[in-house]
């Protein structure tokens, strides 16, 4: 996620330069032919182009809105994950009848919270297609982590394991049906959050929404110098390049945020959020481990 106030143009340049350079060359050619070659038939009436511009703006706004909708939904889901993690841990720590003299019961209670921490990290790695096991080994220990290696969907395996731990607590008499139901509904919420994140990850924005505006932007940018050249003459490339850059930048910017789990600066800041969840949950366990918060680096937080 980008936190800095200004985004340098250098960031947009790699995604736009090919289209812009071609267009600027075309603009210069049109201006030169019109002014020096007296090719006045090149000039177009600006009015139809204005109407086309209005239609194009609607398309671009629709696409930007759809892309932002995906990005914002991803952020909301991770906000919900923060809340659910805290709620589930609070329930595990307070709703289970734990005999503090019984180390097995204390370990079981704490293990549920540690699995919740592991779930958050595993979900982040799952969405970013990153190997979670070295990290999980630090949270759960090597033996429990190795037992997860056979699973393709590690966060789902962790929710299953948490459910098994609740079942074990119930068998040990630490939990009645009513409280078990409440805790299990928190696990269902976790599963729903994971499923929603996977939906965003695995379902791209319909290709029509991304390819059609691009084609229309290109067509419009090719026509702009023809409409401007009668009025601006040799200065046509300046105005035309500015208009083209604006449209291409909007098109590119909306494309950059449509996939919020792709391990880029436009991502939902899952590393920072998962570290925040871990710090909070460890505080609840009274394990104040010396882990620093994840801060923004150069205005970018991941």
């Amino acid at each position: 996620m980008i936190l800095r106030d200004s985004i340098p143009l250098q960031r947009l340049w790699p995604r736009t330069y090919k289209r812009l350079l071609v267009l600027v060359a075309f603009d210069c050619a049109v201006a030169a032919l019109y002014v020096f070659g007296d090719w006045h038939w090149l000039s177009l009436d600006a009015l139809p182009l204005g109407t086309l511009g209005s239609a194009l703006t609607i398309f671009l706004a629709f696409r930007a809105n759809a892309a932002y909708g995906r990005w914002w939904e991803a952020r909301q889901l991770w906000g919900q994950l923060v809340n659910t993690s805290r709620a589930l841990s609070r329930q595990a720590l307070t709703a289970l009848d734990v005999d503090t003299a019984n180390p097995q019961q204390v370990a079981l209670r704490n293990d549920i919270v540690m699995h919740q921490i592991a779930f958050v990290h595993a979900l982040r790695c799952h969405l970013r297609k990153q190997n979670p096991f070295p990290e999980l080994a630090g949270v759960l220990g090597r033996a429990q982590t190795d037992a997860l290696r056979g699973y393709g969907n590690v966060p789902n395996a962790l929710t299953l394991r948490m459910a098994e731990q609740l079942q074990q607590a119930r068998e040990l008499g630490m939990l009645d049906s009513l409280r078990w139901s409440s805790l299990d509904s928190s696990l269902t919420t976790l599963a729903n959050i994971q499923g929603s994140c996977e939906r965003i990850k695995n379902t791209p924005l319909p290709r029509q929404f991304s390819s059609l505006p691009r084609v229309l932007v290109d067509a419009y940018c090719w026509l702009v110098p023809l409409a401007l050249v009668a009025g601006l003459g040799i200065f046509t490339p300046v105005a035309s390049a500015l208009i083209s850059f604006t449209l291409i930048a909007i098109d590119t910017a909306s494309g950059a945020i449509e996939d919020p789990f792709e391990n880029t600066v436009n991502d939902t800041p899952m590393t920072a959020l998962s570290r925040g969840i871990e710090l909070t949950l460890r505080e609840m366990l009274d394990q104040r481990k010396a882990l620093p918060e994840v801060r923004a680096i150069d205005g970018f937080v991941y």
Partner: peptide
Amino acid sequence: SRALDSFFAESAHYP
């Protein structure tokens, strides 16, 4: 130092 602590934060858990 701050940036290094925040970069690749998950590696703090690596064995």
